[in-house]
Structures are given as structure tokens and as C-alpha cells.
């Protein structure tokens, strides 16, 4: 057979990458089609987008309609409101809190920090869990033993109490909180899940094929194992976001964080001023709790829908 090399594209590094991008785009589209088959995922995504818009809208409103003196989520105070807390009114759609600050503004302002916290901890978790999981699975032996026993230890340590102890020594801000949750989750349960998947990938013949090709350990781990672990990592990322937002709310509720404003803190303020269990001041408690519940649920829903994309066995044919 004659080999007339008809090159489909002019081979340059850039062209190859362009081709890869095109392929990823196509892959993304098919996965999106699978994702959208599940209404739960779409509902979750809708809620996330809704909160994203809220977060984006806040600085715009602060610069245009809302005067900073009155509507600032932390230091604002409205002279025209005779009594704080005040119920919803045209000026304050969700009323004001016991310190006379606008609840809606607080809610919207906090959203971006909740997102930031969630994404930070999820990223840390995924990077650690995927790397550690892939290395443990690939090398086994002493490395595996060390990380797995570490994971057992981390799992045994309850997250919320340890955060409470940490916070008691040195009140934590959003970033510290994100890092701690990310580390604990990354070295804990998520690693074990990723590692067990890694073990399944490690024994695939294509790993042997890569070794026969001459690939070293790092080549195999990063070109073959990690890409095949990523979908699962992505899935766990969603669950970490949920747990991060939830943990922050609990800590702030106990007043253990050094955070200017967050949903947890809003509930904390309500509690400190003794409005927690009163029906008439529902506007202090419900918006923040609902936001926490909804956003946590939304990430969880997205995770569940992703699960069906990642695990073809769960799919309906």
C-alpha cells in the first residue's frame, strides 16, 4: 500500500491544540445533552445561576440605586426606619435587621463569598484528592499505606467540632475556612473514593500499553490516570461545595468566624438579638436559611446529575 500522507491539517502545535479544543467542545456538547436529560440537574443549575446573578447584581445596585450609607450590608443604617428590625417595605424589600441594615443587600452581598468559599475548598479538595489518589493507586505500598491511614485519621476527626476548636484559638476568615475544609476533605474521604477508582484504572491494559510505549511513572499518572479520574473528581467537587457552605453557616451561627457578612452570620445576628424563634420576624431568618438550603441543594442536584453523565451505568437507555 502506498502511503500518500494527506495531512488533514497543517501540523503545528497550535493546530493540534485547536483540534483538541474542538474535540473537547464536541465532548462538552454531548455531555451537556446527557446532563440536560435529567431535570434535577437543570433545576440545580438554575438555582446556581440565580444566585450567581444575585451576586453580580449587588455591586451594580450599590453603585446605582442603593446609597451606600443606607444599604451597605455591614455598616448601612436607614434613618427613616423608626424601629429595627422592620418588616419588608418598598424601601427594604426584605426588611432590615436588628441593627437597621438592609436584609436583601446582606443576602446578595454574602452570595459571592459563599461561592468563593465553595469553589476554593472544592478546588483544593480536587487537586489534593486526585493527585494523592492517583499516586496512592499507582505506587501502592508504603505511599498508599501512609495516605490511606492519614485519610482514616482525617475521616475520624469530625469536621465541625475541629473547626469550632480552631476558630476558638484564632477566629477564621473565609479564605482560611476554605483552605481548612479543602484540606480536610481532600485528604479525607474524597481521596479514598478517587484512589479506589484509580486502582480500577491502574489495571487497565492501556496503562501497560503506555509503559510499553516507554512512558515513565509521571507520564502514566498525569496522561492516563488523572484524565480518567477527573470526571469522578468533578463530581465530588460539587459535594464539597455543599459541605463547605454548610460548615460556614454552622460556624458563623456560633459566631466563631471572623467574617464581616455571610448567611450564617445573618442567622447569628438574628439569634444574638433574640429574634430566632419568632414568627413575626420571619424576614430575618427565612431568607438566609432558604439561601443556604437552596444553594447547598443546588450543588448537590448538579452533582447527582453529573453522576449520571460520569457513570454510564446509571443512565437510562
Amino acid at each position: 500500500m502506498t502511503s500518500v500522507a494527506v495531512r488533514p491539517i497543517k501540523v503545528t502545535r497550535a493546530a493540534l491544540w485547536r483540534m483538541r479544543l474542538q474535540l473537547s467542545w464536541r465532548g462538552l456538547k454531548t455531555n451537556w445533552a446527557l446532563f440536560t436529560e435529567n431535570p434535577i440537574g437543570l433545576i440545580g443549575l438554575g438555582i446556581i445561576v440565580f444566585f450567581g446573578l444575585l451576586a453580580l447584581l449587588h455591586p451594580i445596585l450599590m453603585h446605582t440605586v442603593w446609597s451606600p450609607n443606607i444599604y451597605d450590608p455591614v455598616s448601612g443604617f436607614d434613618m427613616q426606619v423608626p424601629m429595627s428590625p422592620s418588616p419588608p417595605s418598598p424601601r427594604h424589600l426584605l426588611g432590615t435587621d436588628p441593627l437597621g441594615r438592609d436584609v436583601l443587600s446582606q443576602l446578595m452581598y454574602s452570595t459571592r463569598y459563599e461561592f468563593g468559599l465553595g469553589i476554593l475548598s472544592a478546588l483544593i479538595t480536587v487537586i489534593i484528592a486526585t493527585t494523592v489518589g492517583a499516586f496512592s493507586a499507582y505506587y501502592g505500598g508504603i505511599i498508599d499505606m501512609f495516605f490511606m491511614r492519614l485519610a482514616d485519621l482525617v475521616i475520624m476527626v469530625p469536621l465541625i467540632p475541629i473547626l469550632i476548636v480552631l476558630a476558638a484559638f484564632n477566629p477564621v476568615g473565609m479564605i482560611e475556612l476554605g483552605i481548612v475544609i479543602g484540606l480536610l476533605s481532600g485528604f479525607g474521604g474524597t481521596t479514598i473514593v478517587i484512589k479506589s477508582q484509580g486502582l480500577a484504572v491502574k489495571v487497565k491494559p492501556y496503562i501497560e500499553a503506555a509503559r510499553i510505549a516507554g512512558g515513565g511513572d509521571f507520564h502514566i499518572i498525569f496522561s492516563h490516570m488523572v484524565p480518567n479520574l477527573m470526571p469522578l473528581s468533578l463530581l465530588y467537587m460539587m459535594f464539597v461545595v455543599t459541605s463547605a457552605i454548610f460548615s460556614e453557616a454552622v460556624l458563623s451561627f456560633f459566631g466563631l468566624t471572623q467574617i464581616k457578612m455571610s448567611w450564617g452570620l445573618m442567622i447569628n445576628t438574628t439569634q444574638v438579638f433574640g429574634y430566632l424563634l419568632r414568627f413575626d420576624t420571619w424576614y430575618l431568618l427565612i431568607p438566609a436559611s432558604l439561601a443556604i438550603t437552596l444553594l447547598c441543594a443546588a450543588f448537590y442536584f448538579v452533582g447527582r446529575a453529573l453522576d449520571e453523565v460520569v457513570n454510564p451505568r446509571l443512565r437510562r437507555r
Binding site: P205, Y206, A209, S223, N228
Partner: peptide
């Protein structure tokens, strides 16, 4: 080497 299982001997990604 050429492997037995053509479904498993290539990285699906």
C-alpha cells in the same frame, strides 16, 4: 506489544 482487548487497551480519553 499488542493486547487482547481492543476495548480496554486504549485510553478512552
Amino acid at each position: 506489544m499488542i493486547f487482547q482487548d481492543p476495548y480496554e487497551s486504549m485510553n478512552p480519553r
